[in-house]
Amino acid sequence: MSIEALDFALRRRAEERDRISDDLLDLDSHPAYQLLEGARLTGETRRHWDEAQARAVTLWWLFDAYRGVLDRAQKLRAGKPDLAALTGLLAGPSVELKPENVPVEKRSLLRAAGEWITLDTVVARMDAAYRDVAETVAAADTAWGALLPRLDEADAARRSAQDLLRDLDGDDPELDRIGAGIDRVRAEITADPLGSAALGGELDGLIADLTARRALLEQAARIRADYGDRARRLGDRIARVAEAENEARSIRDTVLVKIASPALPALPDQAAALRDRLGALRTARDRWLELAGRLTELEGAVDEALARARSATESMAGLLGRRDELRGRLGAYHAKVVRLGHGEDAALGELYGRARTLLWTAPCDLRQATVAVAAYQQAISRIGVAG
């Protein structure tokens, strides 16, 4: 090589050395690299990291060898240039890999001596080693990046739930279970990020459980704050349930007298049991977490009982309404017959009389009355006076 080519090669190699040095330092200081170095790894991550560390040792050894050759070349250039020696260092096989320096994965039992390689080969091997180490670091960083922030959020939510629980002066085995699960997931993801694929779903379930539990604790805190007013309102609603059930019984008695063989819904009778449940809640005061669930369940039961009583009343009242609607239709048909001069028609009179008797007889047979009114209306239609 000419002196100009040697100077160019030296500058290029020096720039290459500095760039490689920066990349190696960046890798070494990467947060995930530092975590991997400091963690007590297990499982798949431990296997990959052991391999990566071996590659990292090889990488740094190769870099030291590369730097040592370049230092010798620069010293030679600083004195009286020996073009042949410089060319040999920069372009020839100037780096000796002794058997003990050869990476395990590249050794052979038949290899008795080391090998000499060029600086380009050194760089190529460093690049391969660097990529292997960086790939492991990046995979761990991705896994940690996906789960650790969510674990931090879960821990914050857990601390908030624990603060609520302390304010309620109680304990909560379910919250303890969720917290133990979060701690276990954190330990597993910290020790084996590369084997943590299944932990995301488990963490989702724990966070959902924690969200629901925290909501229950917040509800318990609200109940403690306004328990008196809430219990009074609940008592008032139970009183309305009793009124609605009494009304349903009254309507039922009326229907049984006025409608023949009615199909009646089951008579609701929940008010007394609801009062007993409200009374039992008073014994659970100071156990606010338990009370929160029971009070909410009771409120739902009261709403359901009130709706059931009102529905039963409407259903039974509908039978009386059906009778009254048939009476109104019969009266309207008869008025039209009279207005049009057919009031003395014997056949129409007989049909009218039968329908009227059925509708004004107690108990009223709604099925037969419906048939009779329909027959009267059809007879009117046939003689052309139905309008």
Results as ranks from 00 to 15, higher is better:
Arg40His: 00
Ala198Gly: 12
Ala312Phe: 03
Ala112His: 14
Glu325His: 12
Leu199Trp: 07
Val133Met: 06
Glu304Ala: 15
Val371Lys: 13
Ser250Ile: 06
Thr42Gly: 03
Pro173Phe: 09
Ala112Leu: 15
Lys258Ile: 08
Leu306Ile: 02
Ala5Ile: 09
Ala292Lys: 10
Thr313Ser: 15
Glu304Asn: 10
Arg339Ser: 10
Asp167Gly: 11
Arg40Ala: 14
Val104Ile: 01
Ala335Met: 09
Ala52Phe: 09
Arg55Ser: 07
Phe63Asn: 07
Ala346Val: 06
Thr357Gln: 13
Tyr227Ile: 06
Asp204Met: 01
Gly38Glu: 01
Arg111Trp: 01
Glu37Asp: 03
Ala220Met: 09
Arg323Met: 12
Val123Tyr: 05
Ala312Leu: 10
Asp50Val: 09
Ala198Lys: 14
Leu274Phe: 03
Leu326Ile: 04
Asp365Pro: 03
Leu216Val: 07
Ile259Met: 10
Gly300Cys: 03
Arg237Phe: 04
Glu290Ile: 06
Arg150Leu: 08
Thr142Ile: 09
Val302Cys: 07
Leu278Ile: 01
Gly179Ala: 15
Pro31Met: 13
Arg166Leu: 03
Asp172Ile: 06
Thr211Leu: 09
Ala312Ile: 03
Arg222Gly: 13
Ser311Asn: 11
Ala85Asn: 07
Leu110Pro: 01
Ser2Asn: 10
Arg67Asp: 11
Ala157His: 06
Asp26Lys: 15
Leu351Thr: 01
Arg224Gly: 02
Leu306Cys: 12
Asp22Thr: 12
Thr283His: 12
Glu4Met: 08
Asp82Tyr: 12
Ile251Leu: 13
Arg308Ser: 14
Leu278Trp: 06
Leu330Asp: 03
Arg329Tyr: 08
Ala156Met: 04
Gln377Ala: 14
Leu89Asn: 13
Leu89Lys: 04
Glu247Tyr: 02
Tyr66Ala: 00
Thr283Arg: 15
Glu15His: 10
Thr121Val: 09
Pro81Asp: 01
Val102Glu: 10
Arg46Trp: 01
Arg125Pro: 06
Thr361Met: 14
Asp226Ala: 03
Leu109Ile: 11
Asp71Asn: 11
Gly43Gln: 04
Ala143Pro: 00
Asp120His: 02
Ala180Gly: 03
Ala84Asp: 06
Leu319Gly: 12
Ala197Pro: 12
Val257Ala: 08
Ala134Gln: 13
Ile251Phe: 08
Arg287Lys: 06
Ala208Asn: 13
Glu135Val: 02
Gly321Pro: 13
Glu344Asp: 15
His334Asp: 02
Lys336Ser: 15
Lys258Glu: 14
Arg150Asn: 02
Gly201Asn: 11
Glu344Met: 07
Gly293Cys: 09
Gly145Leu: 05
Arg310Gln: 12
Gly318Leu: 10
Asp64Val: 07
Arg131Pro: 02
Gln270Phe: 13
Val338Glu: 10
Arg55Gln: 05
Thr142Pro: 07
Val122Trp: 04
Thr283Phe: 15
Lys106Tyr: 07
Gly235Ser: 14
Phe8Pro: 00
Glu344Ala: 14
Arg46Thr: 00
Ala355Phe: 00
Gly331Lys: 13
Leu109Asn: 07
Arg232Pro: 05
Val185Pro: 11
Ala212Pro: 03
Val123Thr: 05
Ala73Ile: 02
Glu135Arg: 15
Arg240Asp: 11
Glu15Lys: 15
Leu27Arg: 08
Asn246Val: 00
Ile3Asn: 08
Ser196Val: 01
Ile189Thr: 10
Glu202Pro: 05
Thr190Leu: 14
Ala134Leu: 04
Leu97Ile: 05
His342Arg: 14
Thr313Tyr: 08
Met126Gly: 05
